[in-house]
Design a protein around this nucleic acid. Structure first.
Length: 825
DNA sequence: GGGGGAAGGACTC
DNA sequence: CCTAGGAGTCCTTCCCCC
């Protein structure tokens, strides 16, 4: 394909630059104040996009306004605009309060900074910004000739990702809802995005770019920066005698790059060439499509270019900043310096410095450094039809957690900060986050924390006016790369339990590639040791204690079962240690034992959840775990170890409150759990066949709780299809779990720390459920180890003729806690 | 007062 | 008739704690 370099100018003429300035930019504001921008101007026609010029803006806006007005989205935007207007009014009021001397002093200060920055200007690099033209649409048009001559867009009725130039003539643009686009252009062809295809093209694009700069950086699928300085130096002779368009070496090189991209992908790209990334980015937009723009690395040329450039053209200046600056009389980069004193008084230091850099046309000159930064977060979110159904919301949340978990595993990273993002139906976005003491990628942890956060938010709403959402997302941040942080390996839930059982797992794993696999294997190769480091599966706190009962109590505390004071007391009596995070590394010796008793450390303790939402749905009950694929063969099908051996006959005492949706009913089938602990081979089908089991979860596919094909096989639980997984409470009536029968409901919601998908209001049922979540083998092993340990302890006790090392007398756990398995039976 | 966590917001493609 | 994304980064503000 012939590459046309249609922008071989040396110095951009003012007229030429202005042709890229949408008229609205200049007319939106009067000097210092009279803001004439309307909400619709911001909502509707974004003429900054290539191909969006010379449109009948009036007609387009009218159509969009008609389609938008009255909608919740529009109302939300209106409110946001009102807030911004108020903020701008406040800002102008503050400006009025500044004295001339204040402004002058601020200006002088910024002038000094300007001098310093000017002297540091680096014009030695030749930076290129490559931007594929209407990328998604172009790929689709390439692959489907029928789309080439029609107005088309990639996206859905809800949202468009991009549109071709034929569609842009109608005002159809990216980030526009499809239904509005169809009103603008009824013939518009909507194509669903195919990201795999786009990624493949992007990869090919990268293969071209790497030939010119090994350190090129992809900013998105269709955008990249590269530094061609070295390439030019090494190949100047070859380009000098080439027939490539362009008068200068940079132009010829970039023409060659674009031609290579075109040959490799059959797609066109536009490019900007400048002394830094910021300017290169601006330049790449000037001659779209299929063009390039070269801004020579000359101070005068750069300043002439920048001074006439619309402020909105700068990457980082969006609608809000544009309006704020407009109120100061700043519409072009050239307007910045005269107002820099005011800017420094009104905006933050970072913003002022940023504006100063813009006014000088400065930017990043180190492309490699741009790509060197590790990612900061990973998230998954989804938009859905607004709902207030708690079951649906929790199901969606669980699904997003699973997606995030999957991606964390793929990237082999984990993090400490879990944030949920919710968008209400009125488009108000909120986020709630919780920082963990230790980094994790465990699905169970992500789910439990996320649910807790969502739960807390739900509690703020009344039943009459419940939280109604249209979007849920989960984000993991404060990331660390497991491949580079082997010392900071997190323990999986199963490892925790193995550890808790008194064994110190071999944990030999730690190559980045097989970490997960080894984590699972570690359990099988548990060694018998005398180590007593217990990592609480609920709060992730490492508890070093000689006594399982103490650890039991800690977990009870985390689950809201026992009073924390008791645990604190017990722990403080021991010479145990907790952990401190030191750069993410578990340190069992640094910090005195306070973490376990510290409220703030208990990251995900499900207590006092007054809004007991799961009575009829069993949270996560419809979660679809993948058992059909690679994991199926690894699934450990277990016969549920359950405590229903001889008590079903007593179900005449059942206090099944049914599975109605009216919240907090605790359903108690009278079964003595304690009596059943020795039974390890009961079949769930049999055991539950006669019980009044809630079937609310009958369709649940919780056979497998882990989609990670090579990890934590131990966690993959396959139970019979009618496994109880809802909050049916088969419990001993002598426990206060059944207080609900008489209306004395415990305000404690316990979440299974293994699968996190079920909640309970009675400990016994949680205990029962844990039987299901842990395979028989592991329980046996745990029991066996714990028994051996207990036996050894007893022998030591006998030999020493003493109680315990600290004189504290140990009682067997009174409650049926989840640590029963490790309690020495 | 500084540091850090939490929440919100702006901006990008 | 309804229907306005997803993922990521960075910055600011507020608040609490030391």
């Amino acid at each position: 394909m012939e590459v046309v370099s249609d922008s071989t100018n040396q110095v951009p003429a003012q007229a030429e630059l202005e042709k890229h300035e949408p008229e609205t930019d200049k007319t939106k504001f009067d000097n210092l104040g009279e803001q004439r921008v309307s909400l619709l101007d911001n909502l509707i026609l974004n003429t900054h996009k290539a191909g969006m010029k010379d449109l009948d803006a009036g007609k387009i806006n009218e159509i969009i306004q008609k389609a938008s007005e009255g909608s919740l989205f529009y109302q939300h935007k209106q409110q946001a605009q009102l807030r911004l207007d108020a903020k701008i009014a406040e800002m102008k009021s503050a400006i009025d309060g500044f004295t001339t001397d204040q402004v002058a002093a601020a200006h002088k200060q910024m002038e000094r900074q300007r001098m310093v920055l000017s002297e540091e200007r680096d014009l030695s690099r030749t930076i290129v910004h490559i931007d594929m033209d209407m990328f998604y649409a172009a790929v689709e048009m390439r692959d489907n000739p029928k789309l080439r001559d029609v107005a088309m867009a990639v996206g859905s009725m809800s949202m468009l990702s991009t549109s071709n130039y034929a569609a842009r003539k109608f005002g159809v643009r990216a980030a526009m809802p499809g239904f509005i686009a169809l009103k603008l252009c009824p013939e518009l062809v909507l194509v669903s995005p195919n990201f795999d295809k786009y990624k493949a093209v992007s990869k090919i694009m990268g293969q071209v770019l790497v030939r010119y700069d090994a350190h090129y950086v992809m900013m998105s699928l269709d955008e990249a920066y590269l530094d061609i300085t070295e390439h030019m130096a090494a190949n100047s002779d070859a380009y000098q005698h080439s027939a490539l368009p362009g008068d200068t070496l940079p132009e010829r090189v970039v023409a060659q790059i674009r031609e290579d991209i075109c040959q490799a992908t059959q797609l066109t790209a536009s490019a900007g060439i400048a002394a830094n990334t910021r300017l290169a980015k601006v330049c790449s937009d000037l001659n779209k499509p299929d063009g390039q723009y070269y801004l020579p690395a000359n101070v005068d040329t750069i300043m002439a270019f920048v001074n006439s450039l619309s402020i909105r053209k700068i990457n980082g200046i969006g609608n809000v900043m544009e309006q704020q600056l407009g109120a100061l009389g700043i519409t072009s980069c050239g307007d910045v310096m005269p107002h820099i004193g005011l800017i420094s008084l009104v905006f933050s230091e970072a913003s002022s410095s940023y504006m100063l850099n813009i006014s000088l046309g400065l930017g990043c000159t180190d492309v490699a450094a741009m790509g060197a930064g590790d990612r900061k977060s990973m998230s998954s979110e989804t938009t859905f039809a607004g709902t207030s159904s708690k079951q649906q919301l929790f199901d969606i949340l669980t699904s997003q957690c699973q997606q995030l978990h999957k991606e964390l595993l793929q990237a082999n990273i984990r993090g400490k900060l879990i944030t949920i993002k919710i968008k209400r139906v009125d488009f108000v976005i909120k986020s709630r986050s919780l920082s963990l003491g230790q980094s994790t990628q465990e699905l169970q942890v992500i789910v439990s924390v996320s649910k807790k956060l969502l739960c807390q938010e739900m509690e703020k709403y009344s039943q009459d006016n419940p939280l109604t959402l249209r979007l849920i997302g989960v984000r993991m941040s404060s990331l660390c790369d497991m491949a580079n942080n082997n010392k900071d390996q997190q323990l999986s839930i199963t490892e925790l339990f193995a550890k808790a059982a008194g064994g110190e797992q071999t944990h030999e794993t730690h190559s980045s590639s097989d970490t997960q696999q080894s984590c699972g294997a570690g359990l099988h190769s548990t060694k018998h040791t005398t180590a007593n480091n217990f990592l609480c599966p609920v709060c992730n706190t490492l508890i070093q204690t000689k006594f399982l009962s103490t650890f039991n109590k800690h977990i009870d505390s985390c689950l809201g079962i026992n009073s924390k004071e008791n645990v604190t007391s017990d722990l403080l009596k021991e010479t145990s240690t907790s952990y401190a995070t030191d750069g993410g590394t578990v340190n069992s010796s640094k910090v005195p034992n306070v973490a376990a008793a510290n409220d703030s450390e208990v990251g995900y303790c499900f207590s006092n959840t007054s809004d007991q939402y799961n009575s009829d749905h069993s949270i996560g009950g419809d979660t679809e775990y993948d058992i059909s694929s690679s994991n199926a063969s690894k699934t450990t099908t277990i016969t549920v170890v359950n405590n229903v051996c001889n008590s079903l006959a007593e179900d005449n005492a059942t206090c099944d409150d049914s599975t109605t949706s009216s919240s907090s009913s605790t359903r108690c089938n009278v079964i003595s759990t304690d009596d059943c602990n020795s039974c390890v081979n009961y079949n769930t089908d049999t055991c539950f066949s006669n019980s009044s089991v809630s079937t609310s979860n009958a369709g649940r596919k919780d056979n497998v709780s882990n989609t990670n094909s090579n990890s934590n096989n131990n966690k993959q639980i396959s139970s019979s299809s009618n496994t109880k997984s809802s909050a049916n409470c088969n419990t001993d009536t002598t426990t206060d779990d059944c207080a609900s029968k008489s209306g004395g409901l415990k305000e404690v919601v316990m979440l299974c720390p293994v699968c996190c998908s079920v909640e309970f209001w009675c400990e016994t049922e949680l205990n029962r459920h844990l039987d299901e979540c842990l395979s028989v083998e592991h329980i046996r092993a745990a029991k066996s180890q714990a028994q051996q340990q207990t036996t050894m302890q007893q022998k030591r006790k006998q030999n020493n003729n003493a109680g315990t090392s600290n004189g504290k007398r140990h009682k067997p756990p009174i409650n049926n806690t989840i640590t029963k398995y490790f309690s020495g039976i």
